[in-house]
């Protein structure tokens, strides 16, 4: 879902760049409180995993593919503030080193794929504390958050395209939502698989488990 330069107007680029910079700055301040000794290397490992999984485009339908966004995965492991920072690092490297996703639109891509997903996940986790007390419940919550985050990211992207005058919202939104409803299922499956793997060996490293009040 990486927007290249040229799709968005300069006004939308300016607003989204300022907005993304402000939110990431706030996230960095909040993330300092959440950074304990174990989390420093986990931040690196999560970024590596999100980058690698984003390369694995999976077939969805009619000559179309999708790939993981990763904000849900990063947020369940690290909390929303570190989570959105991790995905932002990945998006920055992709734009500058791999020419994947534009530079002027980096703020928009950061909002869509990092910030929106992390905040959606935080909201879903917050509303399901009792459910998350069991590992199976947490995995169900992860699946729902993953699907909703992809839909939310597709909606944000559609709005940015429409406000830019690139394409009317009534045209782009249904098209984006119908294909991302399928891609969201892939996001859910991959996120659940990774979180289940971490739960199996180091459940104490899963923030979504910690925040449910389960002793490590």
């Amino acid at each position: 879902m990486h927007i290249p330069d040229g799709y968005l107007s300069s006004e939308v680029c300016a607003v989204t760049n300022v907005g993304a910079a402000g939110i990431l700055g706030y996230a960095a301040v909040r993330a300092r409180d959440e950074l304990d000794e174990a989390r420093v290397p986990l931040v690196g490992a999560t970024a590596a995993m999100v980058f690698a999984l984003q390369m694995l485009n999976f077939h969805v339908a009619g000559g179309t593919s999708g790939h993981l966004l990763g904000a849900v995965l990063a947020t369940v492991l690290l909390g929303p503030w570190l989570g959105m920072l991790v995905v932002s690092v990945v998006l920055g490297v992709q734009a500058f080193a791999f020419a994947d996703g534009g530079v002027a639109v980096l703020g928009a891509n950061t909002l869509n794929m990092a910030v929106v997903g992390s905040l959606v996940t935080a909201a879903v986790l917050d509303g399901t504390k009792a459910l998350r007390a069991r590992a199976s419940g947490l995995l169900g919550v992860v699946a729902v958050a993953a699907w909703v985050s992809v839909i939310a990211a597709a909606t944000a992207t559609s709005i940015e395209l429409a406000v830019s005058g690139t394409i009317p919202l009534a045209t782009v939104l249904p098209a984006m939502l119908s294909v991302h409803a399928l891609i969201g299922v892939g996001e859910a499956a991959i996120s659940v698989a990774v979180v289940a793997s971490v739960l199996a060996v180091r459940p104490d490293l899963v923030d979504g488990r910690r925040a449910a009040g389960v002793p490590a």
Partner: peptide, 24 residues
């Protein structure tokens, strides 16, 4: 991995705004 266009690229191609994409 699949080399097909991703969801956004597919929509851009179908709706005819993919050619607006440029390299910074």
């Amino acid at each position: 991995a699949s080399s097909s266009p991703d969801g956004l690229n597919r929509v851009a191609m179908d709706q005819g705004f993919d050619e607006a994409g440029t390299l910074h």
